[in-house]
Computed example of a mutant assay.
Amino acid sequence: MEALHRLLKAEFTRFVIVGGISAVLEYSLYFAFKTIADYRVANVLAFILTNVVTYILTKRYVFTSSSQIHKGYEALLFAVCLAGALAVNQAVLWALVKHVSMDDKIAKALAIAVAVVWNFFTRKYIVFRNHGVATQPVSRDFPAGKS
């Protein structure tokens, strides 16, 4: 149990968990919006809505500010990095669908994967840099070193 607890405390692991939740949400919203809009518009809508949720989860569970950075400035940095992620996501989706003739179900999954890499590095090194890592409360159910 201690090994599992250490794994779940790891910054990247928490990022992957939040990212997994976000990926499922974005993928689902994409296909919901695609029923009423072009795939490019559906992608933008799904991406934006998903990343509102992702910001909240990332801020709460992955990276936290230990400094007194202005929250508005942090949100602005997040939005700028997010715009880059949207551009990357949109370009990958468009290129794979339009120029490679890939099915959009696969292309969307690949676009999400590329954006995940972008998001981790921009959030870690730009948005939440030098702000510390979120810490999870220690469970009192299992004494340290015992499973």
Rank of each mutant, 00 (worst) to 15 (best):
K105M: 08
S66A: 13
L8F: 15
I48L: 11
Q90D: 12
K34D: 01
V16Q: 05
C81P: 02
D103W: 13
S65V: 05
V44P: 07
V44R: 09
E2Y: 05
S147A: 12
V117M: 06
N89K: 06
V53C: 13
S147P: 00
V44D: 01
I56W: 10
F15G: 02
V116W: 07
D104I: 07
P137Y: 07
T122Q: 05
I36Q: 11
V92A: 09
L7T: 12
K34N: 02
V24C: 09
R140D: 10
W118K: 02
F63W: 13
W94R: 10
H70F: 11
C81Y: 05
F63K: 04
K124Q: 06
S28N: 10
Y30Q: 10
G145T: 12
L82F: 06
F142M: 13
V100D: 04
A42L: 09
T58H: 07
N119V: 03
V114N: 03
I69F: 05
V44S: 09
F142I: 06
D104P: 14
H99S: 11
L93Q: 01
T13V: 14
G20N: 13
I56V: 15
S101P: 00
V41R: 05
V41S: 08
V41T: 15
K105Q: 14
D38N: 14
R140N: 00
L57N: 12
L76G: 07
I69S: 14
A79G: 10
V117Q: 01
E11P: 09
M102Y: 06
N51Q: 14
A134F: 07
H99Y: 14
V52Y: 12
T122D: 08
A46I: 06
S28C: 12
H5N: 12
I126F: 15
W118N: 04
V97L: 06
L93R: 03
A3M: 11
F47R: 00
K59L: 08
A37Q: 08
V97E: 01
A75M: 14
M1R: 11
T54Y: 10
F78M: 03
A37L: 12
E11R: 12
G132M: 02
A83Y: 04
Q136T: 07
I106N: 06
A87N: 04
R123D: 05
F31Q: 06
G19P: 03
A37Y: 12
F121Q: 02
Y39A: 00
A42C: 11
V16D: 04
M102I: 04
Y125C: 09
K124H: 03
G145I: 15
V138S: 13
T58C: 15
S147T: 13
V116C: 09
